[in-house]
Amino acid sequence: MGKDTKLILDPLADNNPITIQVLGICSALAITAELEASIVMSISVLFVLGVGNVVISLMRNIIPSKIRIIVQLIVVATLVIIVDLVLKAFAYELSKTLSVFVGLIITNCIIMGRFEAFALGNGPWRSFLDGIGNSLGYAVILIIVGFFRELLGSGTLLGIKILGDPVAKTGLYAFGYENNGFMLLSPMALIVVGIIIWVQRTRNKALIED
């Protein structure tokens, strides 16, 4: 396996940002009640982390080490705000969908974590790949969690009724099935992620902690 492919593939499973590196948990919990929101958030992070990693990597030799955290935070925040402003001016509808995520992206520690751990020590191309890989790894978990929470919580996927109509009692609901509203609450996201970790580590024993 080439070094570059490894950068992309590793974070998808064995070095997953959420289940292994413990980064970006807050957003994974906050927005996964719906599959659509999970996907939108994943794409936003893909963009910000990809571009941010390149910017930080280009600046890595001129950033003073004493204030590097401030610099990193400001780079993310500036990027996000610029995108937000431009969208507000030219694609207002889209910006309204995304505005919810602005704060979540800035405070998302996956971005800071990758800046600190990778972009500060590597070239732009490798940093870019690392950014893409990690955001894809992040996306995988978000989409799995979003899938189960929306399906079990509201009986829908991407807003489409999969299990029938709960009010008109069609489909599964005709047999007495009920949506589990509890799945929509944030604590359940924690438990779902916990179960994902369980499954992952059962499959790959090397990841088990002592």
Binding site: L185, I191, G194, I197
Partner: peptide, 23 residues
Amino acid sequence: VPPALRGLGITFIITGLMAIGFM
């Protein structure tokens, strides 16, 4: 604790249960 759940996994689940309590 089941080996695969040790460490991070069980912590996630406990946090979830604590959050339910705090609700």
